[in-house]
Design a protein around this nucleic acid. Structure first.
Lengths: 385, 385
DNA sequence: AGGCTCTGCTCAAACGTTTGAGCATACGAA
DNA sequence: TTCGTATGCTCAAACGTTTGAGCAGAGCCT
């Protein structure tokens, strides 16, 4: 028998128990150790399944586990994080959580985090590189084990630095330097090509693009793919307007296009929020969609099919993007994968609805077959208040 | 002069520096203390503005601050949290972050957190009380300093327990036991009354409600207020269908109402997601809105005014709800306020658009004035990808 | 000269873990 | 009997802070 004389580790403070009268003291390793007349080290190893490795008697392990369960012991994640430098938390940084696209990303990442026993720190960069940098710094400082970042996308240095510091980091949606970091996005270029092909087949010749934030990967890939396909298919230039992934930019760009290129028969809008602005402008000017202007929008949203006319869209696999990014992050965290800078491009679909038609016509005549989905019930999903 | 012999605190591990060759060692209180030949305690107090209180020489304080700035010292939040039991983090738990309503709440709470120097832990309860309980437990365990909770709302025990444990907690949107806890919601009842008044004035007599999750505060207040106003104004019963804040529930409820009460001339839909389902069903059945069925929806969303017909809605001050909840939380955290169970009900607005009309008619004739806003441009906001 | 007060710090414990190293005891072998 | 080895733990440091208590020296008063 070993001596059971253990020094009281100084005076145990009783928490607020003297005041409230019933705030039970936190149960820590100490608590368990004392009750079992063991050292905290032993208890720790027993709980962490290190019993075999450190020759803790099986009976002892059992007693520890039992008491832990009985007292409802939960290890203190902060102490653990301090000691081990791993916090069981991941960070997610998005440009705007209020945006349904990123909200959906957040939803799938949150889901993955929970299923893996991690907590999720959320940061909103508000499309500002400075805020993004700050937020990433804060999160690194808090020892997040890894990060999913939907970067603003205009600058990449701070992100590369962070990743090089050894912290697993996966980019989603917008990549910066996607050749250096793991990255999951929609196949923006494919979307651009599909849009161009559709409009070309319908007989359009003079078309315009309402773009988002120039310089960001989604914007450039969508635009360039469209332009290059259009050049090849139709051989005409493409008008471009717009400066941000925002409603206001959509409004201004639409006014701009109407003024400078009133003869365009179709618009390719690279962002669903901008598209709302564009539609508003068209209505205000009494232009009919699709008779006067055909509209095709990048990114589907639940309401797209409810509108009159319903929007023809390039549908991104939003949930999959978030899910894959999270999966890859957790693969990295479990050392199941090396941080290869593989760039996964997930296929998009063209969903054909009412907002496109041949120039001057009010509806599509020929059922097209460009790898296209006919106005489908894409969005069910859960509800709101 | 004091002795400058300080024991090397055992061997300093170099981190990964030997491997990567340039991972600079973390700068801690120790680092500063050594360089300045001071005790960590002194450095700590100097940095925390305790200089006066603990009689640190002003010159010393200055030297400490300077070096800290020069070396870019950032206190380790985990160590601090472990020691002080306060983490400079808050938690936000919502039923569904993918839902634009809660995404907007998250946006405003995230904003407040950042401005106050806090990080935000996000939890998604997926409208499950069990998940909510787990998530809250996890967050408490991580020592979040406070919580904003948009509860599922069917059970309140775990939330009350958590709050009673002394952790500041503010409810938002849906209250559970709102008489015991600080709470910020829209004035659901006012919304219900406004809806009833509008439909009554337009001459409707047989109307129905498509509800959300029964038993939750928003659902009950909206429904009851509508019913009681309706009883007073029209003296007719109100049909009720629906079982969740979801698209599917909206579809089923709409089918249900059409089958059981085909003669209703107006529906009050308590959730915008359900409303999408309801509209789908009406279209499928060839019912015209508003001629066959007038529609009024609780909660405005950016797309509501773009639809054809545009939706008449009860608009909630979503951002304000989130902002106020966060403000109240931070007031609690700063001890600027006692945790009074005050329930703030923020005013809603009736936004009149095309989806309502007198029974059998296609549009409103009489410009009504029920504290009503004429189909306004409510949503600008920032954009998406 | 001795005591008192003030100044400017230092000490060491504490928060709750993890983890490498080491210490008793028991048992089998020589 | 003595050594070697296996068994089953314990010790103590470490993670990076914060904080109550206390100590040494200087200056002043009596």
């Amino acid at each position: 028998m070993k001596s059971s004389i253990r020094p009281e580790p100084s005076r145990k403070r009783q928490g607020a128990s003297s005041a409230s009268g019933r705030a039970r003291a936190r149960v820590t390793l100490e608590t368990l150790a004392r009750r079992l007349d063991l050292a905290p080290a032993t208890v720790s190893r027993a709980l962490n399944g290190q019993g075999a490795r450190y020759r803790i008697a099986p009976g002892t392990v059992r007693r520890v586990l039992e008491l832990a369960r009985k007292l409802g012991y939960r290890p203190n994640p902060l102490a653990r994080a301090l000691r081990t430098h791993t916090s069981h938390s991941i960070g997610l940084v998005v440009p705007d959580i209020g945006n349904p696209f990123f909200a959906e990303i957040a939803s799938s990442v949150a889901d993955a985090a929970r299923k893996n026993g991690y907590v999720l720190l959320l940061g909103d960069s508000q499309d500002s590189t400075d805020l993004e940098r700050d937020t990433l710094g804060t999160m690194a400082e808090r020892n997040v084990d890894g990060l999913v970042v939907c970067p603003v996308g205009l600058e990449s240095k701070h992100i590369c630095t962070l990743a090089r510091s050894g912290r697993p980091l996966v980019l989603a949606d917008r990549g910066v330097a996607p050749n250096q970091l793991p990255c999951v996005t929609a196949d923006h270029a494919q979307g651009g090509r599909l849009a161009a092909q559709l409009l070309a087949r319908l007989g359009h010749r003079r078309v315009g693009i309402i773009q988002g934030l120039p310089g960001t990967l989604p914007n450039e890939e969508r635009r360039q793919a469209f332009e290059s396909a259009w050049k090849q298919l139709v051989g005409q230039p493409v008008a471009v307007a717009g400066h941000a992934f925002s409603y206001e930019s959509g409004v201004e760009a639409a006014e701009d296009l109407l003024r400078r290129f009133p003869d365009l028969t179709a618009w390719f809008v690279l962002c669903n929020v901008s598209a709302r602005g564009a539609v508003e402008v068209l209505r205000r000017h009494g232009r009919n969609i699709p008779r006067d202007v055909s509209l095709i929008v990048f990114d589907d949203q639940p309401f797209s099919e409810l509108l009159e006319p319903s929007w023809t869209v390039i549908q991104q696999p939003v949930r999959d993007i978030g899910r894959r990014a999270a999966e890859r992050l957790f693969d990295l965290l479990r050392n199941r994968a090396k941080p290869t800078p593989t760039w996964e491009r997930l296929s998009v679909r063209l969903v054909l609805r009412e907002s496109v038609a041949p120039p001057g016509q009010s509806r599509i005549i020929e059922p097209t077959s460009l790898g296209t989905v006919r106005g489908s019930k894409a969005h069910a999903s859960r509800g709101t208040v």
